[in-house]
Amino acid sequence: MIYGDEYCVHMAPGFDPEVASTAELRALFENATCISRFHASSDNRFIKYISDSALGRSHCYKLDEDRMIEINDSFLREPIVIHNEVADLISFQFVSSVKRSEFLGERKNVHDLGPAIIVSALPGRELTYRVPKVNETIRHVVVYTTLSNLMERMGENSEDYPGWLRDILDGEHDQPRQRVLFLEDVHRELTWSFFHLPVSGRLLNHWMFAKFHELLSIGLQILKNDQAYLERGAEHPAVPHGDIIRRATTILNREYANPPTLPQLARHLGISETQLKSGFKSLHGATIRQYIIARRVEAARLLLNENRHSISEIADIVGYQDHSAFSRAFRRLNGCTPKGWRRSHRH
């Protein structure tokens, strides 16, 4: 895993990193400030850095050559661009709460959609440029680990994972890929202790190792391909109807980009299509199609804020082959186009 030092510059009004040329980006960072020099900790057991305090509170703990944790609790008042070099890594960014805003006339309603993970796989060497949001609290925890030896280190079988990740692990795809996975409420408190560290000194090293493996294991378990699970056929579980519908929700939270058909999902859950549709509408106040579209748009918003992909790439990632349909759905739920959303959240 390569995770190079991060460099920062303040962004001039009107500058758009997405449309800037490679030469313009290089020139921008000629006199950049290094904000993340790794240095030995006091007990030499692991390496950490603390970003420039003017940019917020960001702590990173590099446990060894294969493992690193970033804890970000920032509030930026001026637009900046952050640049570094990475290679051969996969990251799991845990976001404790995803908010969705809706306008009913002049009234704004904010819905809590629960926690999510942004999974990023970068097999080759990449120069990254990120534009964090301003005037908004940025709070998340990210675990980074080496991608090429991940399955071997974890004792896992790559066949249990989604095709897009298997393609990277097998060397059939060499470009970065990202996915957004929505989690259950039980996962909401996973990162709370990172912002209220319960230990210090030499114990912090042991605690960080344990938390790293907890989050990585949970991220991998959630990443395992629900689509392959669906193909094994119906289970006919003897559980309450409400729990069956919640299981459907879990599947759609992970497979919204390529969801099972209604007959597939009903057959797997062991209920009729009519029971599935009525039960889902009763639980969520929305049809399955409406729910999938909302999840796709929420995932797109997170990826737009990450600023790693073009808008057309994000449309593909969240499940839209028709990019015009993506733009229409996004505008209907957010009141602006994806491009307008990205522009407004930089300033």
Rank of each mutant, 00 (worst) to 15 (best):
L28K: 09
G105W: 02
R125A: 14
S58P: 01
G124H: 10
E18P: 04
K62I: 03
D5Y: 07
C8K: 06
G105K: 09
G56Y: 00
D112N: 10
S42K: 13
I117T: 11
V81H: 02
I117D: 11
S97Y: 01
I82T: 07
I69R: 00
V119S: 08
S42N: 09
R100L: 07
P13Y: 05
A121H: 00
S96H: 07
E30Q: 13
K48D: 08
C8V: 15
N44C: 12
E102T: 13
N84W: 05
D5S: 13
A40I: 04
D52Q: 09
S51R: 13
A116E: 07
K48P: 05
E6D: 05
F29A: 04
D73N: 13
F46K: 11
G56I: 04
D88C: 02
F29L: 06
C8F: 04
I50L: 13
T128D: 02
I69D: 01
S51C: 13
V131P: 05
L127S: 07
K99F: 12
S120D: 14
H10Q: 09
M68R: 11
A54K: 11
L25Y: 01
R125C: 10
P132D: 01
K99G: 12
V9P: 06
E126T: 14
S96M: 03
R57M: 00
L127R: 14
A54P: 01
E102D: 08
S42C: 06
F29N: 09
T128L: 13
F38Q: 08
M68Y: 08
P17F: 07
T33K: 14
L76P: 05
K48Q: 10
N44S: 10
F75I: 05
V134K: 06
N109S: 12
M11Q: 13
I117G: 09
H83N: 15
D73W: 05
H59Q: 14
K108L: 12
K99A: 14
E24P: 03
R37T: 15
F46M: 10
C8P: 00
L28I: 10
D43R: 08
G14H: 10
N84V: 05
Y61W: 11
S21V: 05
T128E: 04
R125P: 06
E78H: 11
A27D: 14
R26W: 03
N44R: 14
Y7F: 11
G124M: 12
D5G: 10
S91K: 08
L89Y: 15
A32E: 02
P17K: 02
T33Q: 15
N44V: 09
S51D: 15
N72C: 09
D43M: 06
S21P: 01
Q93E: 15
K133N: 11
K48V: 13
R125I: 12
P79V: 10
I71M: 06
V119Q: 02
D16Y: 07
G56T: 01
P79G: 05
E24I: 01
N84H: 14
R67G: 00
S58F: 04
V110M: 00
A121Q: 00
N84G: 06
V131Q: 15
E126P: 09
C60G: 15
S120H: 12
N44Q: 10
P17S: 02
V19C: 05
I80Y: 02
L25A: 07
V81P: 08
P79N: 03
